[in-house]
Design a binder for these strands. Structure first.
Length: 236
DNA sequence: GCGACAG
DNA sequence: ATCTTGTCGC
């Protein structure tokens, strides 16, 4: 019972860093592996989309991750997986991946099917070194990924229009690295960016299709509920 | 030096 | 992220 199934599908790199200096060096090294010239899975197609999220109990040094598979067309949950581990990295803005990725990879590896797209909490290339959580998870798994964040990070933006689907660019100089996207009329936008192997246009289309009723994508909502439950179960 | 800062 | 009750509204 104490032996978890080996994660041969999405192994954690052996040179996983433990200091901030090592972590930023890893980001600068891996950022070149992000693929930005693939369109990614077509929005509206009968895809299997994964949502991943993590919950923490710093007091007990516990972290719980969840990976959930949804039918992109019906938004019904197809499969759920969780993993519990120790908090291995402090929260440092810009280094979130080193806190979340190890346990997320474990949860993803426990799924019996591979998703066509992974939706992450946080940013992809809209990041100080263009290598946020979603891009990191994409490069390590090879899967198409996008980031849907709840709050602004390093890039400012104009307020998007009031209607569902309205968006405003997150600009890094001349580059549009993400979008503030209104998923519900009159509700605070979410912040979408490309992770790996998906265009920004499609990332936003997927986000809208996954959020027909609430501000956040159903993938994120499902994963959030599951990792919180897993954490409570692990903590007591 | 000071503030800002995904989860 | 997390600490946290009730309350307004569909």
């Amino acid at each position: 019972m104490s032996d978890a199934p080996a994660n041969t599908l999405y192994p954690l790199p052996e040179d996983w860093p433990s200091t901030e200096a090592e972590a930023t060096a890893v980001q600068n090294e891996l950022r070149g592996q992000v693929v930005l010239d693939e369109p990614g899975p077509p929005p509206g197609a009968p895809l299997v989309v994964a949502g991943v999220d993590v919950a923490y109990d710093d007091e007990r040094d516990l972290v719980a991750a969840a990976a959930v598979l949804l039918d992109a067309r019906t938004l019904q949950v197809l499969e759920e997986a969780t993993a519990v581990g120790r908090v291995s990295f402090p929260y440092v803005p810009g280094l979130l991946a080193f806190r979340e990725v190890p346990t997320v990879l474990e949860a993803l590896g426990r799924l019996t099917a591979e998703p066509d797209l992974v939706v992450c909490d946080g940013y992809g290339i809209a990041h100080p070194r263009r290598f946020g959580l979603a891009s990191h998870l994409g490069v390590l798994t090879g899967l198409p990924t996008i980031g849907v964040a709840k709050n602004p990070f390093v890039f400012r933006h104009e307020p998007p229009g009031p209607r569902r689907g309205d968006a405003a660019p997150l600009l890094d100089g001349m580059d549009e690295v993400g979008r503030a996207l209104r998923t519900q009329a009159g509700v605070k936008p979410v912040f979408v960016s490309v992770g790996h192997r998906v265009t920004l246009d499609r990332a936003c289309e997927h986000t809208l299709l996954l959020a027909p009723r609430y501000r956040l994508p159903e993938t994120t909502r499902a994963a959030d509920g599951l990792c919180r439950a897993a954490l409570r179960r692990a903590a007591g």
